[in-house]
Design a protein around this nucleic acid. Sequence first.
DNA 1: GTTGCAATAT
DNA 2: TATATTGCAA
Length: 234
Amino acid sequence: MLSPRVVRPQAHHGSASAGSSSSRRHMVDADAANACGGVPEWEVGLPSAAELTPLSQPLVPPALAAAFGIGPADAGALPSSLDARFLHDSPTSHLSSRFDDYDEEEGEGETEDAATEGRGEKKARMVWTPSLHHRFVEAVEHLGEKGAVPKAIVRLMNVDGLTRENVASHLQKYRLYLRRSRHGGVTITQPPQAPPPPPCFPRLAAQAPPQDTANRNGYCPFVSYTTSSDAIKQ
DNA sequence: GTTGCAATAT
DNA sequence: TATATTGCAA
């Protein structure tokens, strides 16, 4: 379900002609349907229980969930007592998300999974699909401004093949986006961290629709994060 | 070693 | 354009 895509760099030798295939990225699963292409039901149809299951389920076994009075339908909300004990990497790869192969390449038809990329090949470029980004945002918000460091985010997201570098790069852009949003007059509907409520993943239904930043292509990163002269310097 | 960030590369 | 990489300072 949650299938972040990886775009394998084509094995062009010599002069790596980049950009030749960068426009061929596509999204084939629910991401496309739920992408923020101006669809208000963005967060309604999207992840819900099924989407978050891989993240929350292995962390909260049924017994524990029962103890906390949460069920599978409550997968969107993690108990506030969620801590590092449940966040370590688990071998339950079948429960965790995993990069998909990006086949249908135009050039060499070689495909490779992100988890099998260790064969001396170039690392595949990951694609931050809306659902994956959503999970990222959840992790960031869950960890709070202080705790949202790449390492912790990677661990929380629990996505196979997702590296700290991936997250660091994404986080860098994400922060720029947030900063720009706050200063640039664009009121972004993303509470940095709710003060009173305990640190837990926000319910998806309660999630603010990021439609103001959505781009019509179905992929909604953080708008353009080009440094706007002033304002964003820190 | 990790993190954040700017600059740069692909 | 999106993501990766690098270099540098904390």
